[in-house]
Design a binder for these strands. Structure first.
Lengths: 165, 165
DNA sequence: TTTGAATACCTTGATATCAAGGTATCTGGT
DNA sequence: ACCAGATACCTTGATATCAAGGTATTCAAA
């Protein structure tokens, strides 16, 4: 428990240079950032096997877990994935070009569309998500089940405090 | 403790659609991702006050906490910030254009440079980092000190397991 | 000394993202 | 029926990022 990791070294530097600042929160947030970066890099490798990346996987998975008939509007997808409309437009263009989704005009609302998984998209995401889950299991294997649950609860409370504001 | 957050809803959907998969790790990693997104957005607002963003703050802060004479090579900066050489080249171009850093040829190695904080850059980062620390204190205020320390330890162990590989 | 491998950094080309603004469509009040 | 405001989505322009490859310099072994 005495090992200095990368973040600890940063905090030590700040303490020397700016002893007026309380940098304890910086340690926590720094580790969240670094952890996110590491995790994304590993998961990217799995997605790449299926010709996907974070973005495309995100959209296909959102449609897939919705259940049959695997269809949502672009607005629904924007809300679920927390990206802007321009970003979603771009993601959908790529996925449509790849034949993984289909888009039809929403018969009930002339302004909108419905995006649905193609047969090919459904097959792909079903395979990819299984591999993804396996990768994730490996990534958390450094923690005991008990620790993972404890981490879950802390993250959940942290998020609750942030998202309420 | 019974509230379903966004991530819980996603897990519930997957359990219905793919009961064959163990999605517990997905919950943890999903929260890390979402937390990172929320935190970055808030911190960006503080950086913007000083005309900075994640990238530029990262470089200036790395130089600042190094201590006088606030100088590192691009390679050192790449290692500290975990970005590729192309990214660092771009960041340094922007910062140089803004007059926040200065670059001189390394007299000891004709291949390399030394990047140092300009007077303006030093003054700016000293102000910005104080504001940044205040923002971070606010961001973690949803957790008790005890919880924050507990989270720290879990994150540290998680990272240790990942970065060793 | 010479030369091949390693290193330091930059360039290029492709993606992903956002903010701001545009157009078409819907909705509710008059 | 009409119109104003809300909504759904796309477009534009600017940034940030990476992977792959290029050039100049250093280092180390023969």
């Amino acid at each position: 428990m005495c090992g200095m990791d990368h973040v600890d070294k940063i905090l030590t530097q700040w303490q020397r240079e700016r002893p007026d600042l309380d940098v304890a929160p910086m340690g926590t947030l720094g580790r969240v950032k670094r952890l996110h970066q590491c995790l994304m890099r590993r998961m990217d490798q799995t997605w790449a096997v299926y010709g996907l990346n974070d973005s495309s996987f995100d959209v296909l998975a959102t449609l897939r877990r919705e259940g049959a008939p695997y269809a949502l509007s672009p607005s629904d997808l924007m809300a679920s994935t927390m990206v802007t409309s321009g970003t979603m437009t771009h993601r959908l263009q790529q996925l449509e070009k790849a034949g993984l989704i289909e888009r039809v005009k929403n018969p009930a609302d002339g302004r909108g569309f419905l995006i649905s998984l193609s047969e090919k998209g459904l097959a792909l995401i079903d395979e990819a998500v299984a591999a993804h889950v396996a990768t994730q299991a490996e990534l958390v294997s450094g923690l005991s089940d008990e620790q993972r649950v404890q981490l879950d609860e802390l993250l959940k409370q942290f998020l609750a405090g942030l998202e309420s504001t």
